[in-house]
Simulated scan of single mutants.
Amino acid sequence: MNKKTAKSKNKKINYKKSEIKIDLCLEEVKTSGRIIIKGKIIDENSKAIKGANVKITDENFNPLNHTKSNCQGEFSLYTNEEKIIINAEHKGFYTFTSRIYLKDEKELQNLLIKLSKIKQVQNILKGTYVCGFKPIKETEVVLQNTKDKNIKYTATTNENGVFLFSNIPFGKYILSLNSNEYCTKNIKICINRCRQFYNIGIICTKRKMKFGTVNGVITDNSGNPIDSALVVLFDAKNNIPLYTTYTNEKGVYLIGGLLPGKYYIIAQK
């Protein structure tokens, strides 16, 4: 498509000369008219990116056209402007922006845009659990996301009471100590872009223990009590034998002084 256009020189109107004459000669200027822009969005490994937002604006950032890349990462747009700004973005990637002068239509039939992945910040949460001046050793610590129950992390305190979580996604969490022996408050923690390293100290107190007992009767198939049967009490969490005892003449056994927890027994005669 050919257009005729021209621009005159500046001339001034003043009180001495209120009328001026401007003559112009219009020359044909070849323009490309409606130009098709085709391209492909890829990542750093040259893999196609589906669903990337691609838009073009003029030099003043006024929107001209927009689209999304298809399964092959390809897109197609058109414009009548010669000078444009193209913008491509996708979640998890840095935004691509470039100015383009549409002087050669061939250059716009195979535009390759490479998006770089946003590198995840390595968020680290470190803390120490103590009771008085003594570290709380070998105790499970739980970090639970408040919105998504599937996001849950566990760690175990070392001999100094220290625990560590790394590569934590952004979000709000509850930090808790999984212990029947110590009293501790749940701590709210917000992992965000403002900080990459968190270091906290938590002071706990010992629970006032109410010791429990396990008792029962060991019988045979007919319901008759069995005396002198061996009864072994196990910690259900770790499957570790804790106490042994024997039944009396009525088949009764009793084990006391137990901390809160889950237990089971095995009896043998």
Score class of each variant (00 low, 15 high):
242 L>T: 01
55 K>A: 07
169 P>C: 05
126 K>G: 13
83 K>C: 06
117 K>W: 00
226 I>H: 03
91 K>H: 08
240 I>Y: 10
249 E>C: 05
267 A>V: 10
4 K>D: 01
201 G>S: 10
248 N>Y: 07
64 L>W: 03
202 I>V: 15
178 N>L: 09
122 Q>P: 03
128 T>L: 06
1 M>D: 14
198 Y>D: 05
59 E>Y: 08
190 C>F: 01
261 G>Y: 08
227 D>Q: 09
235 D>F: 05
161 G>S: 07
83 K>I: 12
96 F>K: 01
188 K>S: 14
8 S>K: 02
70 N>H: 05
122 Q>S: 13
134 K>F: 09
154 T>Y: 08
152 K>L: 13
59 E>M: 12
172 K>Q: 13
42 I>D: 00
104 D>S: 08
254 L>G: 09
228 S>C: 07
161 G>K: 09
206 K>Q: 15
19 E>Y: 03
178 N>C: 06
76 S>G: 10
168 I>A: 04
170 F>I: 15
149 K>F: 05
54 V>L: 05
38 K>G: 14
68 K>E: 15
116 S>I: 10
247 T>C: 02
105 E>Y: 00
234 F>S: 00
175 L>K: 11
261 G>Q: 07
106 K>Q: 04
117 K>M: 03
133 F>W: 08
167 N>E: 10
180 N>P: 02
46 S>Y: 09
258 L>N: 02
12 K>E: 11
126 K>C: 11
89 E>P: 06
189 I>C: 01
220 D>I: 06
182 Y>C: 01
79 T>W: 03
268 Q>C: 08
140 E>L: 05
66 H>E: 14
193 R>I: 13
263 Y>A: 00
32 S>Q: 11
92 G>M: 01
258 L>G: 04
267 A>I: 02
25 C>E: 15
149 K>Q: 08
116 S>E: 14
185 K>E: 11
69 S>H: 03
240 I>G: 06
50 K>M: 14
252 V>R: 12
82 E>M: 12
233 L>Q: 03
156 T>D: 09
113 I>R: 12
58 D>W: 04
28 E>F: 02
125 L>S: 09
14 N>A: 03
243 Y>H: 15
132 G>W: 02
204 C>G: 12
172 K>T: 14
116 S>R: 10
50 K>C: 15
23 D>M: 12
177 L>V: 03
93 F>L: 03
248 N>I: 13
130 V>N: 06
16 K>S: 11
88 A>P: 00
235 D>V: 09
52 A>N: 08
80 N>Q: 07
86 I>H: 05
55 K>D: 15
132 G>F: 08
163 F>W: 10
137 K>Y: 05
15 Y>T: 14
87 N>C: 10
74 E>A: 10
145 N>I: 06
77 L>W: 04
81 E>H: 14
136 I>Y: 06
90 H>K: 15
95 T>P: 12
77 L>H: 05
226 I>E: 02
242 L>H: 02
70 N>S: 09
